[in-house]
Write a protein that binds this DNA or RNA. Structure first.
Lengths: 212, 212
DNA sequence: CTCGGCTTGTTATTTTTTTCACAATATTGT
DNA sequence: ACAATATTGTGAAAAAAATAACAAGCCGAG
């Protein structure tokens, strides 16, 4: 395998997840070897883009043949850092948080929620979807003990910034934020925002433009 | 106001939502006029980027002064197509779908869910979060009647493609898809995917890289 | 009214990302 | 063994996007 190249496009990283999903699908269909075309067929990504993306990390295929599905899956997982189970904390067990607790899409990608927190005294101690809900006041204790560095934030928008700050102080370095607010955090903490309204606006904008 | 320029970067469109959110916040704080710096202070976007983005659509500010918050809000809403209420259908009232039905972040941006559908006979006819759940078999009828062209898809991954296809046939032109699958649809139908696992993978990748 | 401090809008430049073109390698059939 | 075909991997070119540089306009003080 060749050495890592210095600069890897942001977009390449984002697409690796897509490739992983596609590969898992091919594996389910008992396909052992697949070409770049097979892998990208149902993604909105060209096969050249795919090969270029992979080339930043090395050569994983065999010319004239394609890619070993299982092998490439493992390689991409290794690149993404999801080759071992990732332990994740969920903070905010409201309606959305509850739904996320029982989201079935995580295990397949080695993502595992291992702790759930809420501020509501009525919820604390209760079991929800198999998780015992802890008080937010125990954030530090549990996160340190479990060595968690990734969190899902699904608290109300009013408390999002405060809780996010608290998470950062406890050593959390990556936050998936569902609150519609741009979190201000030390720059060594990574944030990814899931903003439903914004996504819809984007769609509506495209819709509108397509009619002009 | 100058005429529209031909090509508008994808990214510009995406950022307009952010600006809108920031403007609404400033308005709440009784700020009538704001500079590009004020508006982008809490976004990860430079003030130059902001002005550049707006310049694709016209000049909305006053040199030496800044932007009228209310006015600019309206202008961006007009650009995005959310200046009037958008009627949206939600398909799939499982745990996630239910959470979305009561999501409070939509009205502020003129987004309104007006119909909810599910395939489960036990749910049909029931009221959930104020919505009467309709059978998916009535999709066409209701969507035509209400003139809906935007839908949120939160059905299980197995049925996502089928239901999406059905939506497209009913005249839906934009789908916000929560199922972890890349939908194949006529190319005049816009799809935006919300993929929680993928977002987490992206974060974990950054985390990993930052340590090297 | 004019100067100096601000802030916008825009053209030019640089950087980043995608696409193209093609060499290199494997496989299959004859 | 060799031609025909399939497919990867990668430098070079093109396209897209971000940043820099700066002209132009507004405001308030004197």
């Amino acid at each position: 395998m060749r050495p890592l190249k210095r600069y890897i496009p942001q977009e390449t990283a984002r697409r690796l997840s897509l490739y992983l999903r596609s590969l898992k699908m091919l594996d389910q269909k008992k396909k052992a070897v697949a070409s770049s075309g097979d892998i990208t067929r149902f993604l909105n990504v060209s096969s050249v883009q795919f090969r270029k993306d992979l080339s930043y990390f090395g050569g994983f295929g065999k010319r004239g043949v394609g890619y070993e599905v299982r092998l490439l899956t493992k390689e991409i997982e290794k690149i993404l850092g999801t080759d071992a189970v990732r332990r994740i904390a969920l903070v905010g067990v409201g309606k959305l948080g509850s739904a996320l607790l029982s989201y079935t899409g995580f295990p397949e990608f080695n993502l595992q929620i291992v702790a759930a927190f809420d501020a509501d005294p009525d919820k604390i101690g209760k079991i929800k979807r198999g998780f015992k809900i802890e008080s937010i006041s125990r954030l530090r204790e549990v996160i340190k003990k479990e060595g968690i560095e990734t969190a899902i934030l699904s608290v109300p928008v009013e408390s999002a910034q405060k809780v996010a700050h608290e998470l950062a102080k406890c050593g959390v370095r990556a936050i998936l934020n569902f609150a519609p607010v741009n979190l201000t955090l030390p720059k060594d903490v990574f944030v990814s925002n899931v903003d439903m309204a914004s996504e819809l606006e984007g769609l509506i904008y495209k819709l509108k433009r397509s009619k002009v």
